[in-house]
């Protein structure tokens, strides 16, 4: 099936988000706060990478000569459409946990909106992804709910820092209106952003976390920095260099 340019960019934004967040999550392999959480978190990372692969496959369906690994890892930075939250290095567990919660709240809404996509393959993929996403969201929420009562300063700080950056998930690519017109996307980023804000605010209230919602200026700053997802965040080059390490050894290797 041929996808319009706008739809391609729209799907690329989601695929790159999944790829980057999955890659970032995997940095906890062997380092999780305890063994069981290590396994759970890295399993989530694997799921996200799986979603990324499925979306890349959809994008490359009509380009049989393009290698998926090369496409995923060797593009010019300007050709990625990931949001800065997904790209960000979260070296501290509290940052990773908070990002996991904010991202998966959003991801669940994104997949849900794609259940009704005019692209049947995408709709089927959404149904599959949502089964995993239910676990991701529950995992994040359960973990946060247990951490929250003691109001640890690190968690509050992580939320305050990451909330405006997370709003950048809803920074739409230029192609979004076309994806909506094609019926491939069924909800605009602005509409999903409203649902997301409600879900996140409800969580914060449930956990008695007193966090001031970021003002429009700070979210606008993130939108400005991302430039409709065309600009990469600081640190992206190092991340990509890391991702490329193996493929660069021998780009023609078959695994």
């Amino acid at each position: 099936m041929t996808l319009s340019t706008g739809t391609r960019e729209y799907l690329l934004g989601f695929a790159d988000d999944e790829h980057m967040i999955g890659a970032r999550h995997t940095s906890w392999i062997g380092l999780g706060p305890f063994l069981e959480e290590d396994l759970a978190f890295c399993s989530i990372a694997q799921d996200e990478l799986g979603h990324a692969i499925a979306l890349y496959e959809l994008l490359l369906d009509d380009q049989p000569d393009t290698d998926l690994d090369a496409f995923a890892m060797l593009r010019d930075p300007v050709d990625y459409r990931s949001c800065h939250l997904a790209e960000r290095e979260c070296g501290a567990w509290n940052d990773s946990l908070v990002r996991h919660w904010l991202y998966d709240r959003a991801e669940q809404l994104r997949w849900t909106s794609l259940l009704e996509s005019s692209n049947e393959r995408l709709a089927a993929l959404a149904a599959r992804a949502l089964r995993e996403e239910a676990f991701h969201v529950e995992h994040a929420a359960q973990f946060m709910a247990r951490v929250a009562p003691s109001q640890p300063a690190q968690i509050l700080e992580s939320i305050t820092t990451l909330l405006p950056i997370a709003a950048g998930i809803w920074d739409a690519v230029a192609g979004e209106p076309e994806a909506l017109a094609d019926g491939v996307a069924t909800a605009s980023s602005a509409q999903l952003a409203e649902q997301w804000e409600l879900a996140v605010r409800t969580d914060l209230a449930d956990w008695n976390l007193d966090i001031e919602w970021p003002d429009d200026t700070s979210t606008a700053d993130v939108g400005e920095a991302q430039g409709a997802r065309r600009r990469r965040s600081d640190g992206f080059d190092e991340l990509q260099a890391d991702l490329r390490k193996v493929i660069d050894l021998d780009p023609s290797a078959r695994w």
Binding site: L39, E138, H139, Q142, R146
Partner: peptide
């Protein structure tokens, strides 16, 4: 065997550690 802070979390984590 697995370690978890409480029963609910144990059930959640057990799925990943033992029945994936």
């Amino acid at each position: 065997t697995l370690d978890a802070p409480d029963p609910e979390m144990a059930m959640l984590l057990a799925r990943e550690t033992h029945s994936r």
